[in-house]
């Protein structure tokens, strides 16, 4: 059997997420992300009526999709895929047309107000290349975020994905995301439209 190519992936075990936002903060510090925009953030919802109420959290980041709509949308090939599957942006070639931001079904991209180009999570590629883990993974207090090569059967991500019921965001979009969630509630994974229909 030939060895498969390395493919970076992340598993987020929501049973272990406490919603402390340490990932949000560490990402901002590590990647020098300006005020008001986020490469990773934590969505939080409350489901049910008192006394039957639960709070759910969903850490969000770029899904580094196999079939990435942003990659198809970019008119100047500033968005590209590395050999190990991460989707990155060449900031020297991005013209800032924002078409990728319209194309991403996950709201993962934003315009860096300082650099004036599109930006998003890179899986901390600069760290990963040096053999380190992404900043959000190292800082996660509950150990909810796990990062690794999903094509290596010995890696923790491969084991977690194989042995747990996992979900991805919006599978119907055929984007084939590589961020997997364990224990995600359906109500927090997409958008909610009931407020809009009430005429808000």
């Amino acid at each position: 059997m030939t060895e498969k190519k390395r493919r970076w992936a992340m598993v987020i075990d929501l049973r272990k997420c406490v919603g402390c936002n340490a990932c949000t903060v560490s990402c901002k510090i590590e990647n020098n992300v300006p005020e008001g925009v986020y490469r990773t953030w934590v969505k939080e919802i409350e489901k049910g009526d008192y006394p039957q109420v639960t709070r759910f959290r969903l850490p969000r980041l770029c899904n580094h999709c196999d079939n990435a709509p942003c990659l198809a949308a970019c008119p100047v090939q500033a968005t590209y895929r590395t050999e190990d599957g991460a989707i990155l942006i060449d900031y020297d070639h991005c013209i800032g047309c924002k078409y990728c931001m319209a194309a991403c079904p996950y709201d993962a991209r934003f315009i860096n107000p300082v650099r004036k180009t599109a930006e998003k999570c890179t899986f901390c590629y600069h760290r990963v290349e040096e053999g380190l883990l992404p900043a959000c993974v190292t800082t996660c207090v509950g150990g909810a975020r796990v990062f690794g090569n999903i094509n290596d059967p010995e890696s923790l991500v491969a084991k977690l994905v194989a042995n747990n019921p996992v979900q991805v965001l919006k599978p119907e979009m055929n984007t084939q995301p590589y961020v997997f969630y364990i224990g995600a509630d359906q109500n927090i994974m997409g958008a909610r439209y009931d407020n809009l229909e009430k005429g808000e």
Binding site: Y38, W41, E44, I45, E46, R55, N187, R192
Partner: peptide, 10 residues
Amino acid sequence: VSNVTYLANV
């Protein structure tokens, strides 16, 4: 379910 409240999002 209908009783879902968003508490935090970007």
